[in-house]
């Protein structure tokens, strides 16, 4: 396994090239999704039904992290404003609900369209820059979105707003039930995983991966990277907007805090922790991050210090993140 790429902290700003999501990553992903699928009955058996609520949150962040992995791990774009899309999705729910549109599918469509448009405009501008400037400018756009919603007093401004009820599906309050809602979120995660795996293996994905590994080489054979990277940015933004719709329904509350730059940073940590450019890693990273947060915050009020130390150790000592472990367990390349 000497060909496994090391992911060191120093590489964070210029994502090195992890393996194309291979057999190990695929099996790891399926195992994770299967574990998610059996969680509700297991939680009931353990007499801890609240676990489903926590797991819903993890599944939703896994979707957001997956979308960021397309940008960060495959597109080599270190976007520091990704949480903005979570916010767009969440506000699509409250804004449409205020207009009397409670339907989950319509709200999702609006979230996807709004997020994709924001990604198209900000991506087209951001992609004129590279490296640390790209990080800065995506951060700036994320902050602009944040302050826009802070100033939106009709929807609670800084304080946000509580949802009257969850969105409806086919005119019925189907997702008021926590388990049903959990399985809907899980279905979205599974579909996103399959879709993105397909996309990264396609012609488009090949150009994206090639550009990440060696931009000049790709130009020298006739590919102009801009359009491909922008398209990936838009797909990722749209998917993360969808995660925002689910997040608003999970918390039954929406506020600008959904889209702070700290939240964008957490999404990056999830992807790097899990292993960039593997998709499975993004899911594993979301699980690892949120479970660790949950467990540690229950143990001590100084948990942030321990949390930070554990993340440093994990990034330093797991080659290729958690997905790297899967590859070593289940075999390497595709």
């Amino acid at each position: 396994m000497s060909e496994t790429t090391l992911t060191s902290a120093a590489d964070a700003a210029s994502p090195a090239r992890p393996r194309l999501a291979g057999r190990g990553a695929l099996i790891g992903g399926i195992v994770l999704l299967a574990l998610f699928a059996v969680l509700p009955p297991a939680a009931t058996a353990m007499g801890d039904p609240f676990l489903v609520v926590t797991a819903t949150r993890i599944v939703i962040f896994a979707i957001a992290a997956l979308s960021l992995d397309l940008v960060l791990g495959y597109g080599a774009m270190v976007s520091f404003g990704h949480a903005a899309f979570l916010g767009f999705g969440a506000y699509a729910v409250v804004i449409l609900a205020a207009a009397g549109i409670d339907d989950l599918l319509l709200q999702s469509l609006a979230a996807i369209a709004g997020s994709a448009l924001f990604a198209l405009v900000t991506g087209a501008i951001s992609l004129r820059t590279k490296g640390v400037y790209f990080i800065m400018i995506t951060l700036a756009f994320g902050q602009m979105a944040y302050f826009f919603f802070v100033s939106l007093s009709a929807f609670g401004g800084d304080d946000g707003r509580t949802l009257q009820h969850r969105s409806t599906l086919f005119g019925a309050p189907l997702i008021e039930n926590d388990v049903t809602f959990y399985y809907i979120a899980l279905a979205v995660l599974a579909a996103a995983f399959v879709l993105l795996r397909t996309v990264v293996a396609s012609r488009f994905g090949r150009v994206l991966r090639g550009t990440r590994d060696n931009r000049v080489r790709m130009q020298a054979i006739g590919f102009a990277p801009f359009g491909y990277q922008l398209t990936a940015y838009v797909i990722a933004g749209a998917l993360c907007g969808l995660a925002g719709v689910l997040l608003a329904n999970q918390t039954e509350f929406v506020s600008p805090a959904f889209m702070t730059w700290q939240r964008s940073g957490e999404l990056i940590v999830m992807v790097v922790l899990g292993g960039m450019g593997t998709l499975t890693g993004a899911i594993a990273g979301a699980v690892g991050f949120l479970v660790l947060e949950e467990v540690l915050s229950g143990l001590t009020e100084h948990w942030h210090i321990v949390f930070g130390a554990i993340i440093v150790l994990l990034v330093l000592y797991t080659r290729g993140g958690i997905a790297g472990l899967f590859s070593r367990l289940f075999g390497g390349r595709a």
């Binding site: 397909t198 996309v199 293996a201 396609s202 012609r203 488009f204 994905g205 090949r206 150009v207 090639g210 790709m218 054979i221 006739g222 590919f223 359009g227 491909y228 398209t231």
Partner: peptide, 18 residues
């Protein structure tokens, strides 16, 4: 990948290039 650059669109998302 070099052949792909001159054979049709690379904005194809659903079939595996390999």
């Amino acid at each position: 990948t070099a052949v792909q650059a001159r054979s049709g669109s690379s904005f194809r998302f659903l079939t595996p290039a390999a």
